[in-house]
Design a protein around this nucleic acid. Structure first.
Lengths: 351, 351
DNA sequence: CTGAAAGCGCTTACAG
DNA sequence: CTGAAAGCGCTTACAG
């Protein structure tokens, strides 16, 4: 069934059929009704490719999740507790706005070709990239494609200094620095003076921000920065588990609290401690970041920093759509607060 | 940049450009190289819509997650521990096969229009539907669209009796009945005689299968079926929590073990019990179904039935692609085993 | 081996 | 208000 067929059946031309489909105002109500009736009777839907070819939008946005450093065969991306809610929220919002979403994951630099193709082949009106690593070259390349693009979680100052701030681009961030600061000050307020950190991947924006907040806050409070208490994680639970075990095995002194750069690692750390009979929170306080679903379902319930993922995703979707609609290349950026959710995994240090 | 431009630059016709893009054999190596060079220089990618219009495939498959009974504003679909891994695995497999995936969620019957449109508008070559409820009318309608379609988790006998088994259709299931049977027999083997169940949504195939396994197995072993121990759940954690609390509040006798139709509910039940100081597994054994990520990270680690989601998803993707490629309408079905993973949440009943 | 031409199914000036 | 026509960017018989 093509518009031609509908036209014949309704006794009009394809032009008219097209006009009613596209809601042109200059179609008499009677004609419109006649055409609409035939369309409904036959469940006609215009071929989306033909429409797109003829200049309409695709009504599809791309969602690309970058997860370069994930190890093979371990947690994949949607089981990744960080990405899953973004995917969830983006699809949700986009669907509600009548957009389809094309999803692609990127595990290696080669996979990037696919996301470039999605743009170049005109499969999508615009795209959202989440989880970009610190790699201004890739960002430059993507921005160079000159399609509406929204980056979730990327260092704005880097974009500014590279003068990438005047294309069809928007950046949506969360205030990780402030959120992490709040968590650490909470720990300090509880009386902790020896605070360790499990780092995230330092080549991501959030990984660095969360770490910097840790370092700055300790310094500001005149607290020692003990190298042994700075565990090199990568956001993955296995690594955090191993690092904690290693610290424990070393037999050296322990901090009284740990701030973990994400919940997944915080929970592994809890496991590692409890296996060594170090009670959380009695003997060791742990705070996480992200507030993943599991955080409130384990024992003790995890104190963490909540990321406003839904709001961020929604903003990202609205931004791409806005960029698709507007002619003027604009650059914009928006940052959402991340706030502490105090639960049961932290308490004052033992005397 | 269009094929026309490439053609000019390479000194050939569009036809030839198209031939090299589509890997026709009758292009001399020299010509091919010349064209390829220009293509690469300009990062040219053929417009996917034009290709599709001209008869090529879209190289896109649809993934539709149906979640009709989810309550508003509560767990959305990708945070849904059942769907997330399917999405993960499907995207993964499809991407690896060079396919894009178009995702859409269905929360209400109205949303179904969108999935129909995706087919009708020819946006995708074929689709995968996961989470279809027992609604043969919708299935009939989808199958009637006459596009390659794979159903994950649907009652095959229903399809057979409706004679829907000769279209571009495939069904991918897991052996929930056998898996649930294994779990219940394990409980029985441990010595439990009073076994309760937390039901899933009975309008889904897996909800019914898991329940039937429970009923049949108890009967086969001559064990009593106590109505009070049959909790009406719907796969959602909140409902399970409430139901367990209600049972506890009733003050009536308790079973010594519960089989929960999914892990999410099993974990809620554990919470509810522990809040009433009923120790799991000492005083109450609990077995779940799905083996979600959280199952092995909570205390006690949950005994559950593992669903081979990755294999199922992979089969689904391969099946749609196969259906897209083949001319003959075929019907096929494949069923994957689900097996018990015994962990720490079950033990023999207290004397 | 390769180009000219028709066709895929739409949309949108253009002309009336 | 509405139809004929051009055009979107490809692919693929067809003819040579």
């Amino acid at each position: 069934m093509r518009s031609e067929d509908i036209a014949k059946l309704a006794g009009v031309s394809r032009s008219t059929v097209s006009r009613v489909i596209n809601n042109y105002s200059n179609v008499p109500e009677e004609t419109r009704a006649k055409v609409l009736k035939v369309i409904e009777q036959h469940q006609y839907e215009p071929n989306s490719f033909a429409r797109a070819l003829a200049g309409k939008k695709t009504d599809t946005i791309g969602l690309f999740a970058i997860s370069m450093n994930e190890k093979e065969n371990t947690t994949r991306i949607y089981q990744n507790n960080y990405f899953a809610p973004f995917v969830d929220a983006v699809v949700d919002t986009a669907n509600a706005r009548g957009c389809y979403v094309l999803i692609h994951t990127v595990y290696s630099p080669d996979d990037f070709l696919k996301v470039k193709q999605a743009f170049l082949q005109k499969r999508i009106d615009g795209g959202i990239i989440v989880g970009t690593q610190k790699d201004i070259d890739i960002v430059r390349e993507m921005v160079g494609l000159d399609s509406p693009l929204v980056l979730i979680d990327y260092d704005i100052s880097e974009i500014m200094s590279e003068h990438l701030d005047r294309n069809h681009l928007a950046v949506v961030n969360s205030k990780d620095y402030e959120g992490a600061t709040e968590a650490i000050e909470y720990l300090i307020g509880l009386g902790h003076a020896e605070i360790g950190i499990i780092c995230g991947r330092m080549n991501t924006y959030s990984g660095r921000e969360r770490y910097m907040a840790y370092e700055d806050t300790l310094k500001r409070h005149g607290l020692p920065l003990n190298e042994n208490f700075i565990l090199q994680g990568d956001f993955l639970k296995e690594t955090a588990y191993d690092e904690v075990k290693k610290l424990l095995a070393s037999g050296g002194p322990l901090p009284t609290a740990f701030f973990s750069s994400n919940d997944d690692m915080a929970i592994s750390a809890m496991e590692a401690f409890s296996e060594q009979n170090i009670a959380v929170p009695e003997e060791m306080s742990i705070a996480g970041f992200d507030d993943i679903q599991m955080a409130s379902r384990i024992q003790p319930k995890l104190t963490t920093v909540r990321l406003p993922i839904y709001e961020m995703s929604k903003a990202a979707v609205e931004k791409v759509i806005e960029l698709c609609d507007s002619q003027q290349p604009t650059f914009s950026t928006i940052s959402f607060p991340a706030r502490l959710i105090a639960r049961d995994s932290c308490q004052p240090p033992k005397q």
